[in-house]
Design a protein around this nucleic acid. Structure first.
Lengths: 333, 333
DNA sequence: GAGGGTTTTGCAACCGGTTGCAAAACAAAA
DNA sequence: TTTTGTTTTGCAACCGGTTGCAAAACCCTC
């Protein structure tokens, strides 16, 4: 059926070890046998089995990529970057879709069975305990877009969501908004919790500002739109909203426009992420930039480091946020 | 380090075969040893190595999921469905990002190395020859969203893009448009070619209709937007456009609106796909529905069949399209 | 051509499972 | 109790690679 080491060895007239060695770099093979082997391999169309190799070396070059967010368009970019950057390093992403599976147990087991070299959890909604479960199982793990902590138990790469909330609050306060609301993502998401926290605390430290909040069912256009529609059906909207994410913002704006309201004249909106569409002229969303590419790059570097150095101390890598001023915030005197 | 068969066998006081058999269903084990083994496995936290098992059985339960479209939001849904449905069958998606790698050779090699049981190519832009390369390498393959043919050499599941083009043309002709254009996806994509073909032929069979065409750089919002901007900068737009895809449509509409034009009063637009956003009130895109879920479900069933029955004759599964009338087409007397 | 050091090579055991085969254990019938 | 038939069990070989170790081959120098 498939071509094996032995076949190539026989054809080249050398031992199986010789063949193995020509395909593992750093091994000692003479130029002569090397070319004999390469010729034979070429002729037979030999491709070494990664599985068999993994069995003896203990390295599969497989990285479990665990995610539960398949609705936020930003995740297309996330998957694109992860897969591309992993491939560039000769690593293969084994995708795990967590949707509706809140327990890490099953995923841990599955990834253990495939002896993945490491795991990257790409999610802004899962708790650090979720990632911890992978670590406890002995899997090198990095939580991308996860909750940051000064004494992390598990490796995290992302942003400071509390700071993001503060930044949004400052932007709204500076512009003179007095009636301010938070329109968050799902209430159970750590990112929602943290962004709300920073936002609320900053707003609350000011006098004469009216605060209210509500939450969308998920990080998606539809959920943002629906939540804003619900708010509008219950009375006057706030003067300005910090939406927990750009997709929520764009969904909310579409609901506002449908209701005949103007942004930013009637209602101000600030988002978070700075996804590509946010920059379009006809959307032109004022938002907070999350450095997605840098986070992903760093996550991969980190997981590779952990693989090579298992006893490494867990670390948190926090990337800075940047306010992107566009046209969905105005000023109130 | 990790727990193996042997460890469990020793603890349970049985042979290694007995342990193996308790974990492969259909094997002959007495209730007594089974429970002994299960107890020991439980206590040790044993998880059988899929790699080792794959080495002897020849089955990895790995499915290569090959794609090159990481910009079209519809693919988020595609990935979500593929990963979910594969997982439900105990299969694992090994993701391959093709972006910028036009040659199948490398991917074929890589998937061979990991002995994937099968391959699904999820792309509307790649040619049948691309899929063929996987088949030639002996990998069971299904091309999802690929080009259909009456005598397929390789399994395809998708829609009839030529028919889609015809359907769009009919919709525009019926509404009395006389100056009609095609705004396609990348010119090299098979789906672009076929949609254009059906569209052009139908338009051309009519008298007194003015036809023109142009192509966006990729299937993405941005590309659609840019191409429409370019068209507008070169003169009067057509009365109506068939955009090769919903994302192109929405991008094009955003460019039109920016230019102060109204849809459908000034320009009519019809898309293809019926992605979720197309249904929003403030977009309300008239489009042609592509049954994504059915295609994916069927693709998975097909690849599983091919795996179990390697000499199966290749087949083409074509799903019907449906015109979704919303509000981006008007009528011209 | 012998002696010494270095590189290359093959043997054989191992990675963690699976499975055909024959022996052992068990159950039922005589 | 013996015979026959059916399950269950363990042995050992195998899947396709890797790698430590000792022997073989090579290269230089004297």
């Amino acid at each position: 059926m498939a071509i094996t080491l032995g076949d190539v060895a026989a054809r080249a007239g050398v031992s199986r070890s010789a063949v193995s060695r020509t395909f593992t770099d750093g091994a000692s093979v003479s130029q002569k046998t090397r070319s004999k082997v390469e010729k034979a391999a070429q002729e037979l169309g030999y491709a070494p089995s990664a599985l068999a190799s993994a069995l003896s070396t203990g390295r599969t070059k497989l990285i479990g990529l665990v995610s539960n967010n398949f609705h936020n368009p930003i995740f297309l970019q996330v998957f694109d970057l992860f897969t591309r950057l992993l491939q560039e390093r000769g690593l293969r992403p084994l995708l795990v879709n967590l949707s509706g599976e809140p327990d890490p147990e099953q995923s841990v087991r599955m990834l253990q069975q495939y002896s993945v070299d490491g795991v990257i959890i790409a999610s802004s909604t899962l708790s650090p305990e979720f990632a911890q479960a992978f670590k406890d199982a002995g899997l090198p793990v990095v939580h991308s877009f996860g909750r940051w902590s000064t004494s992390p138990n598990v490796n995290v790469v992302g942003i400071d969501n509390v700071a993001g909330g503060r930044m949004a609050a400052m932007a709204l306060i500076e512009r003179g908004y007095k009636n301010i609301a938070f329109l968050g993502g799902p209430e159970t998401a750590t990112s929602t919790f943290d962004r709300r926290k920073g936002f609320y605390e900053t707003i609350n430290s000011q006098f004469h500002i009216n605060y209210s909040e509500s939450f969308a069912a998920s990080y998606s256009f539809d959920a943002g739109r629906q939540e804003m529609q619900r708010l509008l059906s219950h009375g006057e909207p706030a003067q300005a909203y910090f939406c927990g994410d750009d997709v929520l913002s764009i969904g909310a704006i579409s609901a506002l426009k449908d209701a005949g309201l103007h942004v930013p004249e009637d209602v101000g909106i600030i988002g978070l992420n700075n996804m590509q569409i946010a920059g379009w002229e006809n959307i032109s969303l004022t938002t907070i930039h999350q450095p997605v590419k840098e986070i992903i790059q760093s996550s991969i570097e980190l997981v590779v480091s952990v693989i090579n150095e298992p006893d490494r101390h867990p670390e948190a890598r926090v990337f800075p946020l940047r306010l992107i001023e566009r046209s969905t915030l105005g000023t109130r005197p």
